[in-house]
Simulated scan of single mutants.
Amino acid sequence: MATPGSSPYKSTGGIRRLAKAMRYSFQGFKAALKYEAAFRHELALAMLLIPAAFFLGRNALEVMVLILCVVLVLVVELLNSAIEALADALSVEIHPLLGRAKDLGSAAVMLSLIFTVATWVTIGVSRYLGHHF
Rank of each mutant, 00 (worst) to 15 (best):
R127Q: 06
H132D: 08
V76S: 07
A118P: 08
V70F: 05
A53R: 14
R16H: 00
A46H: 06
G5I: 11
A118V: 11
M47T: 05
T122A: 14
E84A: 09
G5Y: 11
A101N: 07
A21L: 03
T12V: 09
L43E: 01
F29G: 00
H131I: 14
H41R: 15
S25E: 05
F26E: 00
L18M: 09
S81E: 12
L43Y: 07
L48P: 04
V63H: 12
G5L: 14
V76A: 04
L86W: 06
T119M: 15
A107E: 12
S7I: 03
Y128D: 08
L33S: 00
L45Y: 05
G130V: 09
E36F: 02
A19P: 02
E36I: 05
I67Q: 10
R23D: 01
V92G: 03
L61I: 08
E77H: 03
I50F: 05
A85E: 06
W120K: 12
I50Y: 02
I50H: 04
G105F: 09
V125S: 10
H95D: 15
A52R: 07
Y128G: 07
S11R: 04
S7K: 08
V121C: 09
G57D: 04
L43H: 06
A19Q: 07
A37M: 08
S11W: 04
S25I: 02
G130W: 12
I83C: 06
G124H: 12
A32E: 02
I94E: 15
P4I: 08
R16T: 02
D88V: 03
Y9S: 14
L86T: 13
L43R: 05
N59W: 04
A85H: 07
A53E: 13
T119E: 14
M110W: 07
I67R: 06
A37H: 10
T122M: 13
A101Y: 09
F115R: 04
I94N: 13
G14P: 11
G105H: 07
V92Y: 03
C69I: 03
